[in-house]
Design a protein around this nucleic acid. Structure first.
Length: 422
DNA sequence: TAGCTCCCATGGGTAACC
DNA sequence: CCTGGGTTACCCATGGGA
């Protein structure tokens, strides 16, 4: 039986979240910056109209920001996550099956819904209800495959006449749209692959759909072959409503200022280790493999360069912050070289196990419940009082913390931070 | 038993996505 | 001077059994 997927995607999500709580900024250009206030990662409609580009470093467009009086925000992930949850809960009320694909988009499985209601009507209803309940506006694309649903969503955003809802169930309509869409705008086709496709005369989504399947497989990959089949209405990608178990956890960050000395770098690595361990416990797992990486700046640097990473395999997998910190500190000791200006460091955990049926070895004392208790006490305190409890090795007043100079208040998650309005 | 192929695990690198 | 963070999947080379 043929399937029906919808893709619901929030418009300018981060910028919309910031605007929601600042009605005074209605109709004003707003930009949201990446961690460290480094790049532009989201723009309001007005900012896009002004030609503000996605991903550009802020220092390169200071004058543009000044000239047009663009309001900039540091990213406030807690706010976006909370708004996302509100949007998703509306979708979950309306659709029989929801796959939360990212913070601002979700696939709905509408297979079987089609008889009860016209699909376009369904899309419009969802759009209205999400807006009514969360204040966020969304686009809806409906199609027989996920890739086509993405494409329909792209059209819903691009063409205002659609009222932000596009029903792409009809094959003729699919082909008409695909002829207008650049291959690079197809889901799964990035920069490199679109360049290679274009050198072979494949310029539009339709060109890709009609290309020779054998040669796509041979010269590119199974992944692109699947994309091609999906463009032709053959569903290869199913709903993944249950989140797959994580295979790795990374915690890394650029520093506000370059770090040259080892003790400071040690603090940073300790902090990232603590955060990664916390995430690991949140997943209910233990890790056997621990990696640390450090690197100097990436761009226009006459500075000496150093990138390095080292991995250690623990005798026994663990989620105990103390043991993981011991490991990462040893790795950093081997990795660190004096005389470099480090810009970023990170900790990666992988090779996960279920702590309750764990492979023991002969020489290490067995899993102790003291550690488990201590860690869960730390986690529950930090859950209530965010990050108030930490290890001394993380440093008490770190100077290298990321830059977040334009952070908005925690409107939805911390009542105490709300600005006083009279 | 030397030598061959096949298969699988592993690890580094690339590309994609949001 | 100042350029994000996190995750997965795949490809390919390698090397050790069977």
């Amino acid at each position: 039986m043929s399937q029906v997927f919808a893709l619901v995607d929030c418009n300018n999500f981060y910028a919309s979240c910031e605007k929601l709580f600042r009605p005074d900024l209605k109709d004003r250009p707003v930009a949201v910056l990446s961690n460290n206030d480094g790049c532009v990662v989201a723009r309001s409609k007005e900012a896009k109209t002004l030609g503000l580009k996605m991903g550009v470093p802020v220092f390169q467009i200071r004058d543009q920001i000044e000239r047009h009086d663009i309001v900039c925000f540091s990213s406030n992930y807690a706010l976006y996550a909370d708004m996302s949850a509100r949007v998703m809960s509306v979708l979950e009320q309306e659709a029989p099956e929801v796959e939360i694909y990212s913070i601002d988009e979700a696939f709905l499985n509408l297979t079987g819904v089609s008889h009860a209601e016209d699909l376009t009507e369904f899309g419009l209803r969802i759009k209205h209800k999400v807006h009514q309940w969360s204040g966020i506006s969304v686009g809806v694309g409906i199609a027989p495959t996920k890739t086509l649903a993405k494409l329909a969503n792209y059209a819903a955003k691009k063409y205002p006449a659609t009222q932000s809802v596009v029903n792409l169930m009809d094959p003729e309509r699919q082909r008409r749209l695909m002829a207008l869409v650049d291959v690079s705008d197809v889901w799964g086709v990035g920069r490199r692959i679109s360049e290679r496709l274009k050198s072979q005369g494949i310029h539009t989504a339709l060109d890709l759909a009609d290309a020779n399947a054998k040669s796509i497989r041979k010269e590119f990959s199974v992944v692109l072959e699947r994309t091609q089949q999906e463009l032709n209405g053959l569903s290869c990608l199913d709903m993944e409503s249950i989140a797959p178990v994580k295979q790795q956890i990374v915690c890394s960050r650029s520093f506000a200022e370059r770090i040259t000395d080892k003790p400071t770098l040690q603090q940073a690595v300790a902090k990232y280790t603590a955060r990664a361990a916390e995430k690991l416990r949140g997943e209910g797992r233990v890790a056997k493999s621990v990696q640390v990486f450090i690197r100097t700046g990436l761009f226009n640097n006459n500075d000496p360069r150093h990138v390095g990473s080292l991995t250690s395999r623990l005798a026994t997998p663990t989620s105990d912050t103390r043991l993981l910190m011991k490991a990462t500190d040893q790795l950093l000791n081997k990795l660190y070289r004096a005389g470099y200006r480090y810009a970023k460091a990170g900790v990666m955990l992988s090779d996960f196990f279920d702590p309750h049926h764990q492979q023991m070895d002969l020489f290490t004392p067995t899993h102790n419940s003291k550690s488990e208790t201590l860690m869960s006490v730390i986690d529950s305190i930090n859950h209530k009082a965010k990050g108030k409890l930490f290890f001394a090795s993380q440093g008490v007043t770190p100077q290298w913390l990321m830059k977040r100079e334009q952070l908005s208040p925690a409107y939805t998650t911390n009542w105490n931070e709300l600005p006083v309005v009279r």
